[in-house]
Simulated scan of single mutants.
Amino acid sequence: MEAFNLYLPTQLIFGKDRLGELKDKIAPYGKKVLLTYGGGSIKKIGLYDKVLEQLEGCEVFELAGIEPNPKIESVRKGVEICKKEGIDFIVAVGGGSVIDATKNIAAGAFYDGDPWDLVLDSSKIGRTVPFFVVLTLAATGSEYDGAGVISNPETNEKLFLGAPNLFPVASFCDPTLTFTVPAWHTAAGAADIMSHTFEQYLVAEGNTVTDGLCEAMLRTVIENAPKAIANPSDYNARSELMLASSFGCCGLLAIGRTPSPWPCHGIEHEISAFTDITHGAGLAIITPRWMRYSLTEQTAPRFAQYGVRVWGLDPKAPAMETARKAIEKTAEFFVSIGIPAHLSDLGVTNEHFEEMADHLLSHWWPLTGAIRPIDKAGVLEILNASL
C-alpha cells in the first residue's frame, strides 16, 4: 500500500433544512461578506432570500453571474470587491463553478498581483479569505476539497489551482436544493462524479478498502442518476448523488493507491478551454475512449474487476472479455442518461487537437503515470476517437 496524507478540514452539514445553521457558523468571522453565485436560479427557488436571512446584521456585497467553467474575469471582479471593501468572509451559493471561482477570489484577495498568477503557480497562494458553501449541484466535489479549476478565454487555458487553505470552512449540503436541477446538468454532474472515481480507481495498484469505496461510489451513481433524472424530487436519489459528489474528489478514494495523473480531466480541460462545453459531458465522452486506449493484457484484470463488482459481469469469464464488456456498459450508461456519444455532437472539431495535446503535456501532471502511459500520440488517439 502506498503512503498517503489525508487532510479534510471542511465541516459537511448535510440534510434537509440545515441552512438555518449558517448564521451561527459565520458569526465568528466578521460582518463584511461577499455573496457569490451564478445566474438567477437561486432567486427563482427562493434560496437567495433564505441566505440573506442568515446574513442579517452583515454588510453584504454581491458577485453575481459566475459562469460555468468559471472565467478569470469573474474572479478578478470578486478580488476587486474583497480588496476595496475589506471583505471578512465569503458565502458561495451554487455548484462547482461558483465554488471554484470563490476559491480563486479567496486567495486573490491577499495577493498583490493578478489572481491568474495563482492558477499558473499555486505555490504563490498565501493567506486566504475564509468561505462557506451552500451547495446546489452534485457534481464537482469542490464543496469538500481544496482545489478548483479556472478558465482564461484570452489564452484558451483551463487550469487547476489548489492549496491546503482553499477548503471551505463549512459546506451546507441540502439535497432538496438540487430538486430543480435540469436533467442535462444532473446527468453531467453524475458523469463528473463517476470520472473522479475512475481517475482514482483505474490505476496500477489499489487496496481492499479503497477498491470497495470506489466501486460503491460507481454503483451509487449508476443506480441513482437515472432515478433523479426521472423524478427530480426523489430525495433519496438526490441525497445519494450529493454524498457521492462530496466524497468523490476529496482524496479519500485515492489513499494508499498508485497516484493518478487524472488523464481524462486533463484532456477535457483542454477541450472546454477552447469550446466551453459542459465539463461532465466532455468527461462522459472521453472516458470510454480513454478506457479502450488503456486496455491491455496487463491492465485487463483491473477493468475486469470493475466489470464484475460494479456491473455484475461473470467473474469466471476471461478478463479481457469482461473488461471490454465493462467499457461498453460504461459508454452505454452515459448515453442512457442523455449525454451524446461524440464530441462532434457538442460542436467540437479537431481544429485545435495538436495544440491541446501540446499544452496538456506541458501543463498537466505527467501522463506517464497513467495506468497505460500516454504520450502525445496517445492523447491525439483518444481525442480523435472521441469525435
Rank of each mutant, 00 (worst) to 15 (best):
A377R: 13
A188E: 01
G312T: 10
D121P: 11
V60R: 08
S97L: 07
A385N: 10
I222F: 12
G378M: 00
I222R: 07
V169E: 08
E21L: 15
Y29H: 15
P175Y: 05
A204S: 12
A101Q: 03
I42P: 01
N69Y: 07
K376C: 00
P70L: 11
S142H: 02
G146A: 14
I13R: 14
G256E: 09
W311Y: 15
I222Q: 04
G78M: 00
E85A: 10
P373D: 00
L367P: 00
G282Y: 00
A27T: 14
V79F: 09
L6G: 02
V79H: 08
R324D: 09
G251D: 06
T186V: 04
N231H: 13
A254T: 03
I125D: 01
H279K: 11
Y7A: 08
N207T: 08
A92N: 09
C249P: 03
P68M: 08
W311Q: 10
S74G: 14
V98W: 02
V33K: 03
E223G: 03
H185Y: 15
A107E: 00
G266W: 01
E80W: 11
E270F: 00
F198M: 04
A139P: 04
D375Y: 05
A341K: 15
T220A: 15
I327T: 04
D276Y: 04
A216K: 11
T128Y: 13
A64H: 09
T197W: 04
G46N: 07
Y7P: 06
I125Y: 04
G15A: 09
A183P: 13
N224P: 04
G369M: 04
A139L: 05
K25M: 14
I105F: 13
N165H: 10
S97W: 05
E240N: 10
G280H: 06
C250F: 07
T197L: 06
T178I: 07
S171C: 08
L177M: 13
I66N: 02
F131Y: 15
K227D: 08
C173T: 06
H342V: 01
E328Y: 10
K376G: 01
A138M: 07
N152T: 12
D192W: 11
A284D: 02
R76W: 11
S97R: 06
N165I: 06
K158Q: 12
L120I: 12
A300Q: 05
